[in-house]
Design a protein around this nucleic acid. Structure first.
Lengths: 153, 153
DNA sequence: CGGGTTGTTGCAAGCGTTTGCAATAACAGT
DNA sequence: ACTGTTATTGCAAACGCTTGCAACAACCCG
């Protein structure tokens, strides 16, 4: 099983279609030792499948990120991506129902990068949790991604 | 004294130049009852000073935001702005020197909007503080803006 | 295994925002 | 006031990313 096999299964499990494009994007990200840029993902896939489009790369990445399969790193204006380390992750806790939801580090990464860029302040975000109100108890939009990240109780 | 008089003084006090363009942007934001979009700011200023450029509006807004004089609101792809309510603000606390820095709500706003959009999760960010390491104790970049937001002890 | 449904793709145009650059103008010092 | 220094501006082009749309193909079901 390749390094991204689990991610592929997660895709199917969450009711998303397993298209060649998605597999290719995932495998490019997986076979890279470090993080990859969108442009590099696209050009590598294009070498094999020339019709691959920018928009598809972005849409795929966006999906993978929402599912927590891929982690986003801000690097000077552009974003870079890598397979999520299964270890570190954070939580959103609902005040209403007490439910806990996984929050992939990528979401905090954006916040962190902003503080560093604007203030030179390096926040310590390990062991970080956000309190609030989840979708079913009165939050706004419900995304399909929310489903899989739910942990009971 | 106009509603944005204090903001103008803050600009000078922090060593930035008081250009007509900056004053105009500030006054457009101030005279609006609710928040304003970039496009509206530009067109209102252009009515008086036709050479006003998009880039200048963006650069000015960016500055005002860093100084905490203006608060950013995310609204469906585009950003809107309003004079900062002096009341609500958050803190960054340095583990090293114990120093506290003001963090304008706009920074958390971005984070909040993301959680709402992707998960329907409405975080409660009032009374919110971030721990970490400030610029002088080992953070990354130092921006002039950091200076004014410093509070002793 | 073939047919229908519906998520996904490629394309292209557009979005909001940022950037490099040379010219300009704000402010400090005298 | 005048001058020098240096931040800031206007302009234009580019950036990274998102979106609407019609064509397509992955999957569910019998």
């Amino acid at each position: 099983m390749t390094r991204h096999g689990a991610a592929i299964e997660a895709l199917k499990r969450t009711g998303h279609r397993l298209t060649p494009q998605r597999v290719m994007v995932l495998s490019v990200i997986a076979e890279q030792p470090a993080h990859v840029g969108v442009e590099e993902i696209q050009s590598r896939v294009k070498a094999v499948y020339p019709y691959m489009d920018q928009a598809t790369v972005y849409r795929t990445i966006h999906l993978l990120k929402e599912l927590g399969l891929v982690t986003e790193i801000q690097a000077g204006g552009a974003s870079r991506y890598e397979l999520s380390a299964s270890g570190r992750h954070h939580h959103m806790v609902c005040r209403e129902c007490g439910g806990a939801f996984d929050l992939s580090p990528s979401y905090l990464e954006e916040f962190r990068a902003t503080l560093v860029r604007d203030f030179g302040f390096e926040p310590d975000l390990d062991h970080f949790a956000v309190a609030g109100r989840c979708a079913s108890c009165g939050g706004k939009r419900v995304s399909p991604a929310a489903a899989i990240s739910t942990e009971r109780k």
